[in-house]
Amino acid sequence: MTVTESTASRGIELLGVTKSFGSNHVLTDVTAHLPADRIYGLLGANGVGKTTLMSLITNHAFRSSGSILVDGDDPDENAAVRERMCFVREDQKYNDAFSVKDILRVAPAFYPSWASETADRLTERFRLPLTTKSKRLSRGQRSALAIVVTLASRAAYTFLDEPYLGLDASARTIFYEELVAEYAAHPRTVLLSTHLIDEAAPLLEEVLILDQGRIVLQTDIDEASRGSFVVRGRESDVLDFVGGRALLTQRRLGGLLSVTVRGELNNEEHRRADELRLSVEPTSLQEFVAALGIHALDQSAPQNQTEKAP
């Protein structure tokens, strides 16, 4: 049955995707399968390749090697696939002469599933000035416009790259509400990158964590939220307790040591921590991602003063 086949291949498949600018490897051997109709968080520090990955999938840039399939087709060779994707870049440029109204009027030509009622509702909720020329919009207004276009596009593959630069807490809340409502009513695949990880975490079903051009973790949100924990106490007790486990970060305060450890503790280990009077606390997803990033920076540093001291 062809129906089964097309369902099986729905989604994004990345195989060994690499992007280099000369000797600078922005993405290295990225392999991942993103089944359709889920909201994904693309997380990681600045410069790890999040925007580049979105640009490659949406065919805004060309990969150096590897393969990208969206619903089984290469976007590079298939215009029909490209029509199913919407990616408004964080630094999106519009025709200077265009007002907000003009941009929203031409948008349906690019997005066949355009929902003007969604565009109208969002424009009003974000209080976007319709007659203002695009170049006169503030940072927050440009972000709001990008959100209006991406959500109203109802594109099967929707890419949101740092969608809320310059947006205040109220505008971000409106965005979260509208994203969930739109997604619930019209499911689609959403890839969202953000630094406000803890704020965005409840919206996500799965996360992909990028580090220095590689995917270091792809998992569901509950698993990712249990990615690490912090142990704090007397230095010798902490080191004794964590034993051979991989430590992401270490911080000292007098004779106290606080370490971020990858993974989870079982009940037995929790009891032992209690006996040693160690405090064990879960980390938020944001703290986990930050700890991974700090760990990577420390690893790549030429000298590690603490460890190399005689």
Partner: peptide, 15 residues
């Protein structure tokens, strides 16, 4: 419902 909860709490419908 799933949809009502997700919109109210601003959480993923799968959650």
């Amino acid at each position: 419902s799933t949809t009502e909860l997700s919109v109210h709490y601003r959480i993923n419908p799968a959650t």
